[in-house]
Amino acid sequence: MNRVSLSAIILTFNEEIHLQRCIDSLKNVCEDIIIVDSFSKDKTKDIALKNNARFVQNKWINHAIQFNWALENCDIKKDWILRLDADEYLTPALQDEIIEKLNLIDLSVTGIMLPLQRIFMNRHLKKGYDEIKLLRIFRNGKGKSENRWMDEHISLSEGLTIEFSNSLADHNLNSLHWWTTKHNGYSIREAIDLLDIELGIVTHKKEISKISAQAAKKRKLKKNYAHKPLFLRAFIYFIYRYFFRLGFTEGKEGFLWHFLQGWWYRTLVDAKIYEIKKACGNDKEKIKDYIQKQYQIVI
C-alpha cells in the first residue's frame, strides 16, 4: 500500500493494552505516528519506540490542551492530521478508503468526518442513539481542539467538511472496574461543563468554534439538557435510549452500556452538581473555590 501525507496524533497514559493495536491500524496508512504521553508507568513508551513512532511527553491537564500542545510543539510536516485515542483503531475498510481518497480531495475541503463504531464488552452496539460521525481528519494548520472540559471537538478555521463511508472503531479492552473508575473521574468534568452552560463559571475566553453540523446539534441538545431538572433528566435520557431507540435489542451488553453510560454516569454527574449547588448555591466564585478544594481542579 502507498502511504498518504498524514500524521496521526495519539494521546496516551498507561495504554499498553491498546497501543499496539492502534499503531498496527496506522502502519499501512501513514509514516508519521506521534505518541503524546502523560508520563505513563507501564510499557507505553516501549511499544511506541519499538514501532518507530515519535514519542513525546507532556503534563496532562485535559484532552483539548494536550492535543493542541501536540499541534504546536511536534513540528508536523504532513498535509493532513488524524486524531486518535489509544483505544481506537482504523478498520481495514477505513484504511483502504483513506489511502484511496485522501490525496485526491479538493483544496476547499479541510475536514473529514468518520463514522464511529462503538464496541462494548466485545459487542458492536448499533442501537440506542443516532449514528455518530466525528471530525477526526483535518488539514494541517486548519484545525485544533475546542478548549472545553468535556465533549471537545475539532474546530476548523475555514473550509468544508466531507464524510467517509467506513468506520473508526472505539473498542476499550479494560475491565468494568476500570471503566467505572474512569467515568467517575469524567463526571466532575461533565459537571463543570454543565454548570458552565447553566451559570457561566469557566473563566477562559469563550471561543467561536466552527464544528461539524452533528457536533453543533449535539451541543444544542446538551444546552437544552443542562436546564432540565437534576436526576429526572438522566432517567428520561436512559428511557429514551434503551426503549425508544431500541437499545434493549442489544442483549446484556446493550443493557449494561445504556444503563452505565446513559443513566448511572449521568446520575453521578447530577449528584456532583447537586453537592456543589447545595454547598454554594449559584455563586460562581464559591463554586469554583469548592471544585478546586474538593476535586483539585482549577477552573
Score class of each variant (00 low, 15 high):
278 K>F: 15
106 D>L: 07
256 L>Y: 12
94 L>V: 00
201 I>L: 05
183 H>L: 15
57 Q>T: 03
168 L>F: 00
145 S>N: 10
113 M>L: 15
38 S>T: 10
295 Y>T: 05
277 K>Y: 04
142 K>Y: 14
85 D>W: 01
106 D>P: 00
144 K>P: 01
80 W>N: 00
202 V>G: 04
251 G>I: 05
14 N>G: 07
109 V>K: 07
152 E>V: 12
4 V>F: 02
292 Q>W: 08
136 R>D: 11
150 M>G: 08
73 N>R: 02
229 P>Q: 10
198 E>N: 13
185 G>P: 04
55 F>Y: 15
1 M>D: 09
214 Q>Y: 09
292 Q>D: 13
219 R>T: 06
278 K>R: 15
246 L>D: 08
75 D>H: 14
190 E>L: 07
34 I>A: 04
217 K>N: 11
13 F>C: 15
5 S>F: 08
156 L>Q: 01
76 I>L: 06
222 K>P: 01
175 S>F: 02
202 V>T: 12
136 R>I: 09
235 F>R: 07
149 W>D: 02
122 N>Y: 03
141 G>L: 06
47 I>L: 10
140 N>E: 04
16 E>A: 09
57 Q>G: 00
133 K>Y: 09
105 I>A: 08
62 N>K: 13
118 R>M: 13
16 E>K: 08
176 L>Q: 08
5 S>A: 12
192 I>E: 03
259 F>V: 07
85 D>E: 05
234 A>V: 05
148 R>D: 02
178 W>P: 03
154 I>E: 02
84 L>Q: 00
40 S>Y: 01
201 I>R: 01
134 L>C: 10
174 N>M: 12
205 K>W: 00
208 I>N: 15
223 K>P: 06
41 K>W: 05
85 D>I: 03
145 S>R: 13
176 L>W: 06
2 N>S: 13
142 K>R: 08
22 C>Q: 02
134 L>I: 13
293 K>R: 14
73 N>G: 04
31 E>C: 11
89 Y>C: 04
69 W>F: 10
164 F>L: 09
288 K>M: 15
185 G>Q: 12
179 W>T: 04
102 L>E: 02
287 I>N: 09
297 I>Y: 06
274 Y>H: 13
174 N>C: 13
140 N>V: 04
237 Y>L: 12
203 T>L: 11
1 M>P: 06
37 D>N: 12
171 H>P: 00
221 L>W: 09
126 K>Q: 12
